[in-house]
Amino acid sequence: MEKAGSKSGIRLFFEKVSAFLDRKGIVISGRLYGIDAMSAMAQGLFCSLLIGTIINTIGTQTGLAFLNEIGKFASEMSGPAMAIAIGCALKCPPLVLFSLAAVGHSANKLGGAGGPLAVLVIAIIAAEIGKAISKETKIDILVTPLVTIFTGVGVSALIAPAIGVAANSVGEVIMWATEQQPFIMGILVSVIVGIVLTLPISSAAICAALGLTGLAGGAALAGCCANMVGFAVISFRENRWGGLVSQGLGTSMLQMGNIVRNPKIWIPAILASAVTGPISTVIFRLEMNGPSVASGMGTCGLVGPIGVYTGWIDDI
């Protein structure tokens, strides 16, 4: 009887927890955190670091110093932008969402080269805890920001440096391996990142989290470009110029529905990325010396090529 009562108590506890999470809109989901939040983070990264880099490059080439200042300001806001974007994906209440700016800044700064990955992990933790406490007290305007910021910054201090080191180490291994075996790694990096680009996962965020630059970054860019341009070209008869622009300068992710229905249409793009990868690493020795996030952008807004070009300019 005592054991049955204990089981009943545990069941009741979990039912209450489940009801609380439902009421707060907290959904523990791999898809939500690994796909939706990461994709949103990539958009935040694009709207800060990437756009800032592009503006800065234009300023450098035109000699307009005020553009360099604008680019610098935009780039420095990458941490807050990523965290707020993640908060939007998690449908955070306003006070939680705005508090994530401080969380993103701390996670990105303490995470070093692996800052984007640290922001992803820590912003999710802070956002969900903030959602849990939101509107639970009569002084919500004080409690919610305090809890969200203290949680986020505290967790940043504890784990962001370790996340940064781990992510950077993985990226360095990939880049080192690409330098040692440019042909094989050129194929692997190009194909894998190209596939990730087309899947509903953010290749840009992954490249940024791993700090993927140099020869490996060039291979990643080649794979992304092969998928984007490949799908834009092979679907031109059906989608015409609108499809060419939306896929060639937007994203090949638009083809996911067709890929699910007929996976064979992906084969040409994958084979193309297997060719462009080693061409990039062995023949042209194409290196991404711009921001690592550009390695996973492909031809989206021409961010990838601009990233390579930016690196060339910096090396001159």
Rank of each mutant, 00 (worst) to 15 (best):
G112I: 08
A4Y: 05
S252L: 02
G248E: 04
W266G: 01
L100D: 07
V147T: 07
D36N: 12
K135L: 14
K72L: 13
L50N: 03
V96L: 06
N262M: 14
A74Q: 08
W241E: 11
F13A: 11
F46Q: 05
L90V: 07
C88E: 12
I184Y: 11
F284H: 06
A118G: 12
M38D: 02
I313N: 04
G301I: 01
Q247E: 08
I306V: 10
S280K: 00
R237C: 07
M253R: 06
P291T: 05
Q181R: 14
I124H: 14
L271D: 02
T148A: 08
Q61W: 09
G115A: 10
V103K: 13
S156Q: 13
A101F: 14
G59N: 07
L110G: 08
K135Q: 15
P94E: 06
S75E: 08
A123V: 13
A219P: 14
L32M: 12
M38H: 02
M82N: 10
L215Y: 08
G230P: 03
P291K: 05
P291Y: 05
A208G: 15
D22Q: 14
R23Y: 05
A216K: 03
G298Q: 07
A294T: 13
L90H: 04
L12D: 11
V303N: 01
N168Y: 09
I265Y: 01
